[in-house]
Amino acid sequence: MYGFLIAVGVLLLVSIIWMVYRIQTLVSVVKGSDKKIASGSNKINAIMFLLFLVAAGFLFFWYSFKEYENYQLPIASDHGIVTDRLFWITTLVTGIVFIATHLLLFIFPYRYQYKENKRADFFPHNNKLEVIWTAVPALVLTILIVSGWKAWTDITSPAPENAHVVEIMGYQFAWDIRYAGKDNVLGDFDYRLINASNSHGVDFTDKNAFDDFSSPVVVIPKGEPVLFKIRARDVLHSVFAPHFRLKMDAVPGMPTRFWFVANKTTDEMRAEVGNEEFEYEIACTEICGRGHNSMRRVIKVVEPAEYQSWLAEQRPFIEQNPDLIADLPAELKELAEIQISENKK
């Protein structure tokens, strides 16, 4: 019944529109306005452009300023300050061009709408003008590029020697974290070693792996360089930590990396945004299947001292699960066991 009523309503509406349309057409034929080069609608369209300019311009400014606090995520890394400054400088430059060109684009239609007794200017070209508006954008772009290029080179330069190494491995649909441990060197891995008890495929014949450990939360120190070593186990993923302005794809078979310096602890950020629950997050930004939108991992930034004490508390893989070293050659096994017992002290 409900559906029937809707159908009748729609039918009525359509037929009314139809009638209006036919009448309009007939009236315009009678008036002969369809013979004119430009009918009265010309003026209406010209005015519409002006109205659109004013209304859309108002919305643009109003919303951009009103919402700034919302869409501008707080920055928590050193390089993020640089890239955000670049973003806003570029926005300022493009914003000026955006407004200037649109003023012209929408005012011209009103200003130069068709008049029967008028002729358009025959103005096919002007070399001076054309050279100017080739050269000026080229110059402005060069400045923008060079500053972007400098930032990019700094960000992608090799990580400092003392950077804390953290491995992030993406899989459907989560991230696994591995720390390099006391020696700050990650043990080798091989995807063929992956099984239920060794989700990272760590190769424990490599001594560097003895102190490697995992953590449910990515804990990093404030003010010290951190190197994310990024890889994927199945399909492409992408590590995205929006507050750190950090993004890097995780590629199966091709490890990638990204280093940065966090400059606000989680607690400081909580105070800044006035939210006790605030957490830094990692999300996935490369389509990876059904759970693409649920690959969340929390990053916790702490003071360096707190980081050191946290580090000391962590128990390596081989200590939590001694089976991992059960098959090692005797010599290595001994070494591993020594390390375990040292840790326990």
């Binding site: 080069i37 430009a38 609608s41 010309n42 369209n45 010209a46 060109t101 012209l104 684009l105 011209f108 239609p109 130069y112 709408q113 068709y114 008049k115 008028k118 002729r119 358009a120 200017d121 103005f123 003008l129 054309e130 508006w133 080739t134 954008p137 080229a138 772009l141 923008l144 590029i145 972007g148 290029w149 990019w152």
Partner: peptide, 29 residues
């Protein structure tokens, strides 16, 4: 990055040329 931003120049020229075509025209909408 360098090559990409160069391509913005011919695009900008096209826009300016469209605007100048409208300027002092006799526009029929």
């Amino acid at each position: 990055m360098f090559l990409t931003l160069i391509i913005a120049v011919p695009s900008a020229v096209k826009v300016f040329n469209y605007l100048t075509t409208l300027w002092r025209g006799n526009l029929i909408f």
